[in-house]
């Protein structure tokens, strides 16, 4: 199965790795509307990135579900973090809400002039978005976005383990 697919002038690349340690221009953090970093990736961002990220988030305050906001990435290798608040815990219309969240995260990156952006499996895992739904919606959304006029040159999907990786590989392979 291919680990990357070309869409117009951009690439979708699938990797297995540690999202918050990636040397990329920006990565997406699946946030809560209150923008609290919390545990998991949030804990890694706090530990590795330092306190400035939290301070910046506190100034922003919060976002609505589906929205995205960018902050600097402190001492992390990445330059920016896109905090995107997506659907959680089997709430109604997960697919539709996830599509909006993806679109807003990509737009937010675009506005910042970001050319390389890494995504985790959005909402899969703790937030209980079913992995096949997550993979399908994410690939569909990224493909649609990159098919248009965009400055984003590379979108990386960073899987945490083989289980995540396989689901995305299937969807990536299905791209014509």
């Amino acid at each position: 199965m291919p680990d990357s697919v070309k869409i117009n002038q951009s690439t979708i690349r699938l990797i297995k790795g540690d999202l918050t340690a990636l040397d990329v221009e920006a990565f997406v953090f699946y946030a809560r509307p209150d923008l609290a970093l919390g545990s998991g990736f949030g804990n890694a961002i706090s530990m590795r990135g330092g306190s400035t990220i939290k301070e910046e988030l506190e100034k922003i305050g919060g976002i609505k579900s589906g929205e995205a906001v960018a902050t600097a990435a402190g001492e992390l290798k990445a330059g920016y973090i896109i905090h995107a608040a997506g659907p959680a815990f089997h709430e109604e219309n997960i697919e539709g809400k996830l599509l909006i969240t993806m679109e807003n995260a990509l737009k937010c990156a675009e506005e910042k002039g970001i050319k390389q952006l890494a995504f985790p499996p959005m909402g899969a895992g703790f937030f209980a978005v079913p992995l096949p739904v997550c993979a399908k919606v994410m690939i569909e959304s990224i493909k649609r976005y990159l098919s248009g006029d965009t400055g984003i040159k590379e979108v990386i999907i960073c899987a945490a383990d083989n289980r995540d990786y396989k689901s995305f590989a299937v969807e990536l392979a299905a791209i014509d």
């Binding site: 919390g38 545990s39 998991g40 990736f41 804990n43 890694a44 703790f126 383990d161």
Partner: peptide, 15 residues
């Protein structure tokens, strides 16, 4: 919630 999220995303339950 805290521990589950750590284990899902960091790979171990104490982050």
């Amino acid at each position: 919630a805290v521990v589950s999220k750590d284990q899902w995303e960091i790979g171990n339950q104490m982050g």
